[in-house]
Simulated scan of single mutants.
Amino acid sequence: MPTIRRRRLGTTLRKLRNDAGLTLEEAAEAMGWQPPKLSKIENARQKIQPAQVTTLLKAYKITDAEVFTALENLARDADKKGWWQTYSGVVSPSYADYISLEDDAERICEWTPLVIPGLLQTANYAMETMAGTTLSRTPQEITALAEVRRARQAVLSRPDKPLEFWAIIHEAALHQRFAVRPETMREQLRRLAEAAQLPNVTLQIMPLDSTAHPGILGGFSLVSFPGPAPDIVLLENLSGATYVEGDGTSPFAQAVERIRAAALPVEDSLARLSILEEGHRT
């Protein structure tokens, strides 16, 4: 199965070819290829070397150096194994795809109506929620998945361009109680307040008495990348992850703006966190 990086590269190259007004046959001829070869590259069924990406972009009259760098790197890393491969026994292919996206992303906006975003979870919150929601995982697998969730958070503090993360969390998720470790939510609320102080993290709370907004239809993550690569949206439910690509991401980008507008402003959100943390002390 093609990696999601290869799929992103193929999709982006197809878009740039179309933007250049070239047919598949014309672009392939410029490269000295047969059309099926380029078709396989655009459909992620064949690998392309970084040097070939460079030549192809020149044929498309691309002049932006950032585009060259972004797509050359994507071609170079298309089949690279990430740290999460160590957990291949518990990390599903779709989850591995998302971690790869997260690792490459420049910006993520996540709307979560019922749970704290994984990038902001404490170890105890991750363990408790996974133990409560899993249908078939062993305690050992839950521990491993909690380790993965914590390891993912390194993208927020990476030295080279840390991920810009905008989280909008429904207040209902902040009232969760945990029987085994009652202090879990208090610790989690403190973690949210600390994370919100990072310059690359923006946090908003959707109040219980908010007006109607598109987010009531379900949570999602809108993932954006450097250069020309198009956005990708992640949808999750009990059956696993679904990815929305191409023009299908536009409604989610529009929804994000309305969800942000319905949520509390940042300063008011932090004040609400403080009040909730105090309530969990009792």
Rank of each mutant, 00 (worst) to 15 (best):
G248D: 14
I275P: 00
A262V: 06
I275V: 12
A262W: 06
R260A: 10
A255H: 06
Q254H: 12
A255K: 05
Y243E: 10
A263T: 10
A271F: 07
V266Y: 00
A262G: 11
G246K: 07
E277V: 00
A261H: 12
L264I: 06
T242F: 08
V266F: 03
Q254M: 14
A261W: 09
F252Y: 15
G246P: 03
A262I: 09
G279L: 13
H280Q: 05
G279M: 13
V266A: 14
S269A: 04
V244R: 01
L264W: 07
E245I: 09
Y243K: 03
V244H: 02
S250A: 15
G246E: 12
F252G: 02
L264N: 07
Q254Y: 09
V256E: 10
E277R: 12
L264H: 01
D268A: 14
G248K: 02
L264T: 07
S274L: 07
S269Q: 04
A263F: 06
E278M: 08
A261R: 13
E278D: 10
Y243G: 04
R258N: 07
D247T: 12
E257W: 03
Q254L: 15
R260E: 14
H280L: 00
A271S: 14
G248A: 14
P251S: 09
L273V: 04
R260W: 06
A262F: 04
S250C: 05
R260I: 08
V244P: 02
E257F: 06
A255W: 04
L276Y: 04
Q254W: 09
E257S: 12
R272Q: 11
A271N: 14
Y243F: 15
P251L: 05
L264S: 06
V266R: 14
H280R: 09
L276R: 01
L276P: 02
A261T: 11
T242K: 11
D268L: 09
Y243Q: 03
E257V: 10
V256S: 07
A255L: 07
R258G: 02
E257P: 00
V256K: 11
G246C: 11
I275F: 06
I275R: 13
I259E: 03
R272G: 01
L273G: 02
S269I: 04
L273A: 02
